[in-house]
Simulated assay, not measured.
Amino acid sequence: MKKMIKVVRNNKLLSIVVLIYLSLLLFLPVKAIDSSRNSLYYIKEMFQIMPIVFILTALIEAWMPKDMIINSFGEKSGVKGAVFSLILGSFSAGPIYAAFPICKMLLKKGASIANVVIILSAWAVIKVPMLANEAKFLGSKFMLIRWVLTIISILIMAYIITVIVKKTEIPMVGNLKQKEKNKINVKGEYCIHCGLCEKMLPQYFTTIGNRIEFTQQSLPDEVLENINSIIEKCPAKAIGYHHG
């Protein structure tokens, strides 16, 4: 019983979905059958699409340098980053859930939350093929006005989410729950020697020669939040978790 309760707590969303399906089965069996068929259709579609997406994501992560991601989609990319994000989302292919692993990879490599919001939103609502069909059936004027207003809304939403949500709140490879499987990695080629990490946690970061080194790999629970704060605040994005 205790194990079952633990499983439910660790999978709250899935448990809620199962409970809803069971309720439908009891009170609205016809709806339950229709819902199950639709769910199975999307699950089948995901099994067909997601392996390709994961392979593509791994290739992009391996081949695209981190500094390119930071320059193109990072916190200081400005208008350029917003435009690149809009183009990437608008010319994407596949359902919106295919964008999630790609956006998570971009966040890991230094993309800003605002630009990830733009990519996801553009991917969902302003794909170029969709715009062409919209103009065909509803007219170019309708399509253009809706497109402009949608972009404005996306930019406002990106700003609001950036204010409310921080990167440390987003689950990542190397997050707190995986601390025992990861090591802190300081990339000397990105470090600008600002001294922020050394000031915040001098017992863990120190200058050795001409570079900052992380001096300990044991991560007590009380410093994990500070470690993630340093990773978030590092202006050069030179500090991160090394999985292995």
Rank of each mutant, 00 (worst) to 15 (best):
Lys2Val: 07
Lys3Ser: 15
Lys3Ala: 15
Val8Cys: 11
Leu22Val: 11
Ser23Glu: 02
Leu26Ser: 11
Leu28Tyr: 11
Lys31Asn: 11
Asp34Ala: 12
Arg37Ala: 07
Asn38Tyr: 09
Asn38Trp: 05
Ser39Glu: 01
Leu40Met: 10
Tyr42Glu: 10
Ile43Cys: 04
Lys44Leu: 02
Met46Asn: 08
Gln48Gly: 08
Ile49His: 03
Met50Ile: 15
Met50Lys: 03
Phe54Ile: 14
Ala58Leu: 13
Ala58Asn: 11
Leu59Ala: 14
Met64Arg: 08
Pro65His: 05
Lys66Asp: 10
Lys66Met: 09
Asn71Gln: 12
Ser85Thr: 05
Leu86Trp: 09
Ile87Lys: 02
Ala93Ile: 09
Gly94Asn: 08
Pro95Met: 04
Ile102Trp: 00
Cys103Glu: 03
Leu106Glu: 01
Ser112Trp: 02
Ala114Ser: 15
Ile118Val: 15
Leu120Arg: 08
Val125Lys: 12
Leu131Ile: 14
Glu134Lys: 10
Glu134Arg: 14
Glu134Ala: 13
Lys136Asn: 12
Phe137Arg: 08
Leu144Trp: 12
Val148Ile: 15
Leu149Met: 12
Ile151Thr: 06
Ser153Val: 02
Leu155Arg: 05
Leu155Pro: 09
Met157Cys: 07
Tyr159Lys: 11
Ile164Ser: 05
Lys166Trp: 01
Lys167Ala: 00
Ile170Asp: 09
Gly174Trp: 07
Asn175Cys: 05
Lys179Asn: 06
Lys183Ala: 08
Ile184Gln: 09
Leu196Gly: 04
Tyr204Val: 02
Ile208Val: 15
Thr215Asp: 01
Gln217Tyr: 09
Pro220Cys: 06
Pro220Ala: 02
Glu222Ile: 01
Leu224Gly: 02
Ile227Gln: 03
Lys233Cys: 05
Ala238His: 09
